[in-house]
Amino acid sequence: MQSIYHFSYASVGASLLCAATALGTVSAPPFAFLLSSEGVAGGGLASDFGSVVQVAPTEWLYQGSYHGNTGTTLSWIYLVDPDPFITGTFTVTNESDLARDYLLDFSLSISPPLAASLLSGQVSGTLTDSNGSGSALLTSINGGSVYSALADQSVVQALMANAFQQVTAANGTTSFSDGSFGFPVPVSGPAINSTIGIRFAFSLSAGDSVSFSSVFVANPIPAPAAFIVCGFLGLESRKRSRCGSSRANTSLMRR
């Protein structure tokens, strides 16, 4: 009986350690956005501009909207996990009379840090002639990438370089899916200490809107130390289990 307890404690301990290593936190991780356009920046914690709901033990759903000073409306729905991943959709509508350049960062605090990572990501979207002018245009800024995956604020992967998407029909739309990385096999990434994020940089024509669905996953590569600790606990529980069994056998023999 004692061996069962020992085994249970060891299992729970190992599980908790492994879980703590993998999950690290049980509260909503800080998820922030920063929208810059025409030299005006705004944003903050996404939870201050909408709602956050825990939908799974380590997953939170952020929904919200933001109205920028430059005639821009931004709305989002993002599922995040500090394990970590960021996935969701946002829409930007340029309600001004001029084409605008936008720089939009989504950033998620992760816990615990990743000693090494495996990365995957993707972006897809829809451009809409929202004002019925007969055209809509989405381009990269100076030929750069529209989507950039960030690790600790540094670009680790990028998609949609030299993007040029247009709508030529009044009230029309065009959908685009412009590449991915790490599918089906994740690519190796750097150590990540504090945040992962996705940066969007694009120019959008006046009166039109664009929606982006995006994914960025940074799977942790289990650290050797975690393996060692889990292995040690496993051996310890096995040893105690054996001791317990031999004691039990001995007592039975005595009887």
Partner: peptide, 15 residues
Amino acid sequence: AQPFQIISLGNANFS
């Protein structure tokens, strides 16, 4: 769609 994959549904226009 595979896990964490995005599939574009395409688009349709009419007038």
